[in-house]
């Protein structure tokens, strides 16, 4: 096994362990920080698979922007300290059984399919090659995605600003009809 193979298995183990720890935390700040560790590992895997630009974007967008947004929301809202109520086993055991069946089938397929066993060769697409490819063959999708991001900004602003208008409407309504205070 070469050095790159060892690195792949090492990083994969760290990613899976960090994710498994993250999804079982009760404290959401701990969960978000463990997920940042997991996404850094994913970025290294992307670099190993020959996508240096995507590795940088993964760190910038996933570990940087998205997780910090989660952190802001967790810290902005003082979460109720009461623990979550867990599901009863009768509710999740059948679901876990079906998932296990699918997982076994997927593992069997992955081990039996031809061409899956030879190790992949190292290749790398430089950011320049990747950008030329994207803007030659997928420029229309880039435009659609930019529209989507613009709509997300509008939607988030609308949701954040709608609250104050709602309060004012409610208050004016209550001032006009004081007998409906119990609502």
């Amino acid at each position: 096994m070469t050095l790159y193979g060892i690195l792949f298995y090492l990083i994969s183990a760290v990613v899976i362990a960090a994710t498994a720890v993250a999804i079982t935390r009760q404290n959401m700040v701990h969960a978000v920080v463990y997920l940042i560790v997991s996404f850094f590992g994913t970025a290294m895997l992307f670099y190993l698979f020959g996508a240096p630009l995507l590795a940088a974007l993964e760190v910038i967008i996933y570990a940087g922007a998205i997780m910090v947004l989660f952190l802001f929301v967790v810290m902005m809202i003082r979460a109720p300290s009461a623990g979550e109520s867990a599901f009863a086993p009768i509710q999740w055991v059948p679901a876990a059984f079906f998932c296990l069946v699918y997982l076994v089938a997927a593992v069997l397929m992955a081990f039996r399919s031809p061409g899956m066993n030879e190790p992949l060769k190292m290749l790398s697409a430089s950011p320049r090659q990747f950008a030329l490819y994207v803007f030659e063959y997928h420029w229309f999708s880039i435009e659609v995605v930019s529209m989507l991001l613009l709509l997300a900004v509008i939607g988030a602003l609308n949701l954040g600003a709608g609250r104050k208008a709602g309060v004012d409407e409610e208050r004016s309504y209550r001032d006009k009809t004081p007998q409906s205070v119990e609502d």
Binding site: F46, A51, L53, L54, L57, E58, I61, Y62, A65, I66, L69, F70, V73, M76, I77, A125, Q129, F130, Y133, V134, Y137, H138, S141, V145, L148, L149, L151, A152, V153, G155, A156, L159, G160, G162, R163
Partner: peptide
Amino acid sequence: LDGQTFVLFILAVAATEVSVGLAIIVY
């Protein structure tokens, strides 16, 4: 290289989903 292009779009969609989703959660 099509696979890497798709990951670019997945990143954009994830950012969109998180921004709107967290706004809805705060609301």
